[in-house]
């Protein structure tokens, strides 16, 4: 499937900051499931974008902008061809032993309730890792409701689990926490999901990859109860949301910041203009 991504993130400042520094993970790489035809990140006003690669293989940009004025606009344009691989992820940059993805982080550390949930899923599913992971996705779907606007970016897996609802980030954290609890390496994926009826906020998406012996990394999209396919565009990988976050930023001086995303991720066949 041909996917076309175009969106702009607009920061507006009450009082212009003296400088803005952001670390971006907005640029996907090609692998067996996706071929990146072209990809661009632009900033307005002028800023320096230093490109690098983090140890997990993510393409990063560090954005330095002095005195941006009253707004800063980050635009991303790209085009990719995606292929359905039944959720199995191959051809990615892998520099670490999978055990790296066994550790819990501050965002994934389970509490007693979440640990018990994971243990029960494991007990019911038996020994097969793939079955366990599918059962886990299923159980999360039955236990935790997808609901926007009730959790925040710093909400932990345990908090979202106990609240019983969350967005794709929270569902992914709950999945990761449980998988690691079962001794299965798991990691957070940030990316895009294109659908026919794409609501704007849906296009930035998150899901999970778990490591299954014999198969390798397998994707699980708990929010949609599917394994990622052609509509999924994989951008960055990390231990948790923070690690894979598209943008982490800091400002020096100035007043409050407002953020607005104008986003469009749709299929090449149905190009529409905003």
């Amino acid at each position: 499937m041909r996917l076309r991504i175009a969106y702009a993130t607009v920061y507006t400042y009450e009082q212009p900051p003296r400088s803005v520094l952001q670390r971006l993970k907005l640029t996907p790489r090609s692998h067996d499931g996706q071929h990146i035809a072209h990809w661009r990140v632009d900033v307005e006003p002028d800023a320096r974008l230093l490109r690098a690669e983090d140890p997990l293989g993510n393409i990063t940009h560090t954005l330095y902008c002095n005195r941006p004025g009253s707004s800063l606009i980050l635009t991303v344009h790209g085009e990719a061809e995606t292929f359905d691989c039944n959720g199995v992820v191959r051809g990615t940059v892998e520099r670490f032993p999978t055990s790296v993805f066994l550790r819990q982080t501050a965002l994934t550390q389970p509490d007693a309730a979440l640990a018990q949930f994971a243990d029960e899923v494991a007990a019911k599913a038996g020994a097969d890792t793939l079955t366990r992971m599918h059962d886990l996705m299923d159980a999360i779907g039955k236990t935790v409701a997808f609901e926007a606007g009730v959790t925040k970016s710093e909400t932990t897996a345990a908090q979202a689990f106990n609240a019983g609802h969350g967005v794709c980030q929270d569902l992914s954290h709950i999945f990761i926490a449980s998988a690691r609890r079962m001794g299965v390496p798991a990691r957070y994926i940030s990316g895009h999901l294109a659908r026919e009826e794409t609501r704007l906020e849906d296009a930035a998406h998150a899901w999970v990859e778990a490591h299954v012996d014999g198969l390798g990394w397998v994707g699980f999209d708990a929010a949609n109860q599917i394994c990622p396919g052609e509509a999924h565009l994989r951008v960055a990988v990390g231990l948790d949301y923070l690690d894979a976050a598209p943008v982490r930023g800091s400002r020096y001086g100035g007043g409050a910041e407002k953020l607005e995303v104008r986003l469009r991720a749709d299929q090449g066949s149905s190009q529409r203009q905003d």
């Binding site: 983090d54 140890p55 997990l56 520099r95 670490f96 032993p97 055990s99 790296v100 066994l102 550790r103 819990q104 982080t105 231990l239 690690d243």
Partner: peptide, 18 residues
């Protein structure tokens, strides 16, 4: 053991290969 190092919370991924 592998897990003692790689799954250790103080093993900083950012330092790997650096």
């Amino acid at each position: 053991p592998d897990a003692l190092v790689n799954a250790h919370p103080n093993y900083q991924l950012l330092m790997a290969g650096l």
